[in-house]
Amino acid sequence: MDKSRMVPVPSNAIMPERDIDKTPILETHHLGIDFGGLTAVDELSLTVGKTEIAGLIGPNGAGKTTVFNLLTNVYQPTRGTIMLDGKSTARKTTAQVNRMGIARTFQNIRLFNNMTVLDNIKVGLHNSINQPLGASITRLFGYRASEKKSREEALQLLSFFGMENMANMQAGSLPYGAQRRLEIARALATHPGIILLDEPAAGMNPSETAELMENIRRIRDEFQIAVMLIEHDMSLVMNICEGICVLDHGKVIAKGSPEEIKANPAVIEAYLGKKKEAN
C-alpha cells in the first residue's frame, strides 16, 4: 500500500488509506487544458476523500489556479474528466457545478463589495432559500419565513467566523483578513461537499494564519466536508494537509503525505529549491 501511493494505479488518492473507508468526493482523470500552444495543466489524476484536507502546491505559474478553474468549470478541460460525488461535471455551467457541491474562494478576493456582509452570505444561501419570484415581489407566500430563515442561517455562519458584529458593514470596507473569512463563509453558505481555497493565507500575518489554520480544521470537522487548498505558506500546508499534490509546469511531480513531500527530491528541486533561491 505504502509504495503505491505515488502511482495512479490502483488508486489516484492523494492519501489512499482515506480512500478505503471514504468514497471520494472529487476525482479527476487525466485532466488537462491547453491555452493556445501552452499546456497549462496536463495528466492531472487525483482523488480527494469526503473529509480530507488536501493541499495543491507548486511554484508560481505551475497551474494551480487553473486546476481550480477547471474543477469549477470556469474553463472547459481540453482532456480528461472530473467526477464530483460520483457524477461527471462535463458540460455543466459554473453555477450548476456549484449546486452539485463544489464551492470556492478566489486568489484575488471576489466579494460583492457593494453589498453588506450579511447580504453576501445570503447570496451564498441563494439556492437553499425557497422564495419564488412571486413571493419576492409581493412579500407574501412565505416571504417573511424564507427571509427570516436565510437571515438566521447567515448569522450562524458569520458567528462561526466570529463576524456577527460586522453583519451590516459593507463587504468592501472590511479589513483584509475579514474579507478572506467572509469569502470562505459565503462559499460555505452554498452547502458544498468540497470547498476550494485559493491561497487563503496570502497577505496574512502569522497570528491570522494560525487562526485560519484552526478555521480550516473546524470547517472540515463541523461541516464534515472536504477542503482543498492552494497555498505558498509551507508551514500551513505541512501542518494541516493530510495529502499534498505538487504541480510544476502543469504536471504532477509528487503526491503524498506532508512527510513524503518534504523528503521528495523532485519537490525540493522544483519547489523548495526555487523558493530558497528566491529568498
Binding site: V74, T93, N98, R99, M115, R186
Partner: peptide, 11 residues
C-alpha cells in the same frame, strides 16, 4: 457587483 463570484455561488 461581481459576476464571476455570483456564478461561483450557484446563481
Amino acid at each position: 457587483d461581481n459576476r464571476i463570484a455570483a456564478e461561483s455561488v450557484g446563481i
